[in-house]
Amino acid sequence: MTNEELKIKLAEILPTATIEEAAEIGPGWITVNVEPIEWLAFAQQLRKEEALHFNFLFCLTCIDWKTHLTMVYHLRSTIFHHNIVVKAKLDRDKPAIETVSHIWRTAEFHEREVYEMFGVDFLNHPDLRLLILPDGWEGKNPMRKDFEDPVNMIRL
């Protein structure tokens, strides 16, 4: 499926999403911006739809924009070899989004990482506990831009 066909198909599934294509720079992947509330249903369709078959979530991360957070999901299909990027804008003070760990199991670990590093709350995640940070870690989330560690901060 070419990018054009993909765009049409995605727009069919989720008309409210804004679809961008960064053609000149970057690998030229389609970026779909979704609302957090729509994400779970959209993800299920991406996975289930025969023509799309996005079965491989190869990267899951979050970006702190100081005003808001953005969840970034990189998806690809192991059959059709097409890629898309899904982005969801989250509230910075109380970030929460539905988990996709039952659709792509790899999300379980990646979401735990994002949970402790950015403080994003993944609703219905089966096992949302600290994975990397030491036990009893309290306070700010280390990957946020305003995180200051009074002891070990490296400034360059």
Binding site: C59, T61, I63, V72, H74, T106, F109, H110, E113
Partner: peptide, 15 residues
């Protein structure tokens, strides 16, 4: 870089 993310193979393989 503003944000950089390494999608490391080991993390997923461990899971």
């Amino acid at each position: 870089p503003y944000r950089i993310k390494f999608r490391s193979p080991g993390f997923s393989n461990l899971s």
